[in-house]
């Protein structure tokens, strides 16, 4: 059985302005189709405004689609809303979604009641999850005193309160520091081992590569492709960047002539940036720089937007 199945899904919004009740139609999702196997961790990768959150909202039944169908564990999100709500745990990223004046334990017990867990089971489950996400020591502290990472772990505990087979994680590591994000990803690994179906939205390619079984790329409400994470890894290395200091014009020209170098540019601080556009070119460029005595070198991965630009703007993507 498929954990999540989306076919021809569309969602449009009318924009309102001060003077007009109904403005132009904005298409947040267009003919989106997606199949997530039960037990799969599926990444939904796209820049801001791609339609990731809109899809999560439809799957969590808080937003109705304007066309197409969406099913969770075989249940239609429009006609079988009650069944879907029992199956889905939702973790929205960011600061919102918790009662900050209450304690972590009070939050979880309340959400347990909203998921119709009986009192003793609600208490047991809340305690279990607090331990699992490492918040037992702060269980009776008000959420407003928590760090971003702690709030996000509590979000996850909230999403797991009813032990749902399907989890929607919408940008769960947004704003987290790297250590907290790594810990969070470790928990996602554990959830995968437990056999849960996870739909994880992110704009972080490294995160998608690290935790997902497959990744669907989405932009402006349209699915571009579904790829295995190793493809992301290839793109990350393929479209990497090298920043170096102490590179004179002659050396820069030499490096620019290397096969697979996309572009070179001088930064405002006097350093240079070399953009890589093909596999293996980074190693050759680094060898040139080191051989010329340049030791201040930094490599970095491209942003999602840069990869999109390369793939869609440059060569087109195999959809």
């Amino acid at each position: 059985m498929l954990g999540v199945e989306v076919a021809g899904l569309g969602r449009s919004f009318t924009t309102a302005s001060k003077f007009r009740k109904r403005g132009p139609l904005v298409e947040a999702l267009h003919d989106v189709s997606l199949a997530v196997e039960a037990g799969e961790v599926h990444g939904l990768l796209g820049p801001n405004g791609a339609g990731k959150t809109t899809l999560c909202k439809i799957l969590s039944t808080v937003l109705l689609p304007t066309s197409g169908t969406a099913r969770v564990m075989g249940h239609d999100v429009v006609s079988e809303t009650a069944a879907v709500r029992r199956l889905v745990g939702i973790v929205f990223g960011g600061e919102r979604g918790l009662y900050t004046r209450l304690t972590a334990r009070q939050n979880l017990r309340y959400w347990a009641a909203l998921y119709l867990l009986p009192g003793p089971e609600a208490n047991r489950r809340a305690d279990e999850l607090l331990e699992r996400v490492g918040l037992t020591d702060r269980a009776d502290s008000r959420v407003e005193t928590f760090s971003r990472g702690m709030k996000q772990r509590l979000h996850l505990a909230r999403g797991l309160i009813a032990d749902p087979p399907v989890l929607l994680l919408d940008e769960p590591t947004t704003g987290m520091d790297p250590v907290a994000a790594r810990e969070f990803r470790a928990i996602v690994h554990e959830l995968r081992v437990e056999g849960r179906t996870i739909l994880l939205t992110t704009h972080d390619m490294v995160e998608a590569e690290a935790v997902c079984d497959r990744v669907t790329l989405i932009d402006r409400g349209r699915v571009l492709a579904t790829e295995p994470p190793r493809t992301l890894g290839r793109w990350l290395s393929q479209f990497g960047r090298i920043d170096a200091e102490g590179v004179d014009e002659a050396l820069l020209n030499e490096v620019a002539a290397v096969d697979g170098v996309g572009a070179t540019a001088c930064n405002a601080d006097g350093s240079v940036r070399i953009e890589i556009a093909a596999d293996g070119a980074a190693a050759v460029v680094l060898a040139h720089l080191v051989a010329a005595g340049v030791t201040s070198v930094r490599t970095s991965v491209p942003s999602l937007e840069e990869v999109y630009l390369q793939l869609i703007g440059g060569r087109g993507l195999d959809v």
């Binding site: 808080v62 009650a82 709500r85 929205f92 919102r96 009662y99 900050t100 009641a113 909203l114 009813a162």
Partner: peptide, 18 residues
């Protein structure tokens, strides 16, 4: 404002009872 209204609606409990 806190972003919990959507989550309450998405929960199985009857919002009127809540």
């Amino acid at each position: 404002y806190a972003g919990t209204l959507e989550l309450v609606i998405a929960a199985p409990a009857n919002i009127v009872v809540v």
